[in-house]
Design a protein around this nucleic acid. Structure first.
Lengths: 335, 335
DNA sequence: TTGTAGGCGTTATCAT
DNA sequence: ATGATAACGCCTACAA
């Protein structure tokens, strides 16, 4: 049971000929230790292959050196989402040099919300990053009020207390997309939206409407849900109602691929007859024919900031405002 | 600092009018406690919102109730991989009902291999699931020899000790794909492989060769690397060398999308002129035109088994053999 | 069935 | 600058 490879402070102290307290000091980089003592202790540590026991340390310091990334969506879609992958990459990359470890928390069922909250309140982690898209019921609100450093990826819907969050400027991103359509001479522009209980869905629609209003052009809206099927249904409805569309802004690449297929079935060529712009710049954007013109989000950067902000909050800094990043229009073949 | 919401065993005991030991017993479900005592304690627990302190518990039991899922690839591609997403979903789903938490370990740079090994050896987790694809240097071998319950996703290359692993039957999957091509009358079959330092790459090539040899048909092989660019290069080489191909088995959906594009650029229609079969059945398979016929892997199931096996090993069961699952051919429009 | 008491490996507070 | 020593919250013999 007791692997030979788990020496304690005590043993290191014995080997180095000092007290536990001193070893603890060098392990934690205290400045007031004689260089020669430090050397001796470090030699002993190396020799024994000593690694501090996290549990013992956590017990006394009341810090766990671990942060949670929580995905409170019963909806497993999140995982296949390249957005989530990027966030994860950014977070883990900035956490790596730290001693903090990343604990993944996924709520398989809504019913377990309380379990999640209890866990977070239980002091098992020093802070949490919430990657939630839907503003379902009031978990988000409860999360926001936890006595624990928290950062949201995307401004949470339905939360009325100030929270720290990092997001992309979805409104501006959508605007750029629609303006691009305008700039290449299209005037009959439609949009397929995301679900409106997500800021991403809401804001991208707003961006479209902003531009259309300003250009005094009639709107053509179909509501999607960020899934391929939903996108297909929306595309069908949109084309049924507005057969003369010459431009289409779709709120996600996945839905855009569905739109592409519907368009092709109706014999409408892209971009010649209808120009299409997506959102995300996921792999999908380069695997379709034609390849998608789309709006790129700096996902990895978002993840990195999420982690940095959380670390800062854990460090005591008070932060409760959103941080917003720019998107970039990637022009390919579809518009 | 001390949030009102972190009561201890002691406090629960006081409120319930029993000793700490008794509370501990009911918390851990000991059978030898009077029902009425249990009730009293549980009432107190509920009232106080007591949650056991993990650190204190780990300190004495020497179990951390947490398992690691480690991705020792400096190559961040893994994350965007739907395969990884599926594994993660399966793992987290079977871990959820358990008290075990999931710690995500990603090695940002190869240089940190030692750091990873030290961490794993440090007793911070009870076991680990290794999701590695490449057989680079000897980390895998070192991981396999750790005095810690370990399970590999995919039989690791270059490891000469018996290890527990769960994987899909890549050889058989590839065979099904190639046989399907044969069954629809194609005879000039080529393949685009994955990297040959991954079992997935290796085995899928073997499956192709098996069928070709048995059918006494000449082989046409181009080496890819599971990336879109690599797939594109391979497709170009393959078509340059074998202009008369009428069937193509591509070792991954992502590379298959690249092949589709190359084919289309050369004016070869799919599936009419060239039938194409991919591997993975990722989202990509349904977003291309035509949609891909491909080989599906039960990824979520693999993840679930990975977790189950690890839990069993942690529980003391000795398991050191591979577990192999079947794939399924999904016929769509490309072949 | 329940209570008492000792110890898990650290950090932190005092002395020295 | 270093060393005793007391927590931290829990589990688990052992005793009652």
């Amino acid at each position: 049971m007791d692997h030979p490879g788990s020496p304690t402070l005590e043993q290191v102290a014995a080997l180095a000929g000092v007290s536990r307290a001193t070893v603890s000091r060098v392990v934690n980089g205290s400045p007031k230790v004689l260089p020669e003592t430090v050397a001796a202790v470090e030699r002993a540590i190396g020799e024994l292959g000593y690694v501090p026991n996290r549990a013992a340390r956590a017990l006394v310091t009341r810090k766990t050196d671990s942060v949670a990334i929580v995905v409170p969506e019963p909806d497993s879609r999140v995982f296949s989402d390249p957005f989530f992958a990027g966030i994860l990459r950014g977070v883990s990359r900035t956490l790596a040099p730290t001693s903090s470890q990343l604990v993944l928390l996924i709520e398989p069922a809504e019913a377990d919300d309380q379990r999640l909250l209890r866990y977070l309140r239980g002091g098992h982690v020093d802070g949490a990053i919430i990657v939630s898209h839907h503003g379902r019921d009031n978990v988000l609100q409860e999360l926001a009020q936890l006595p624990l450093p928290i950062v949201f990826s995307a401004r949470p819907i339905g939360v009325d207390v100030p929270v720290a969050s990092v997001d992309v400027d979805n409104v501006a991103g959508a605007r750029t997309a629609v303006e691009h359509l305008l700039s290449i001479g299209r005037r009959k522009l439609g949009t397929i939206t995301g679900p409106l209980d997500m800021t991403a869905g809401l804001d991208r629609l707003t961006g479209y409407q902003d531009v259309m209003k300003k250009a005094k052009l009639p709107e053509a809206i179909a509501f999607g849900d960020f899934t391929a099927d939903g996108g297909e249904q929306a595309a069908i409805r949109l084309l049924d109602d507005h057969a003369d569309l010459d431009g289409l802004f779709v709120a996600s690449d996945l839905m855009a691929t569905a739109a592409l297929r519907v368009l092709s079935q109706r014999g409408r060529r892209v971009p010649d007859d209808v120009a299409v712009v997506g959102f995300d710049d996921s792999v999908l954007a380069t695997t379709t024919t034609p390849r998608l013109t789309t709006v790129r989000q700096p996902v990895e950067k978002l993840g990195a900031r999420l982690a940095e902000i959380l670390l800062a909050k854990i460090g005591g800094t008070k932060l409760t405002s959103p941080e917003i990043y720019d998107t970039e229009l990637i022009v390919r073949d579809s518009a």
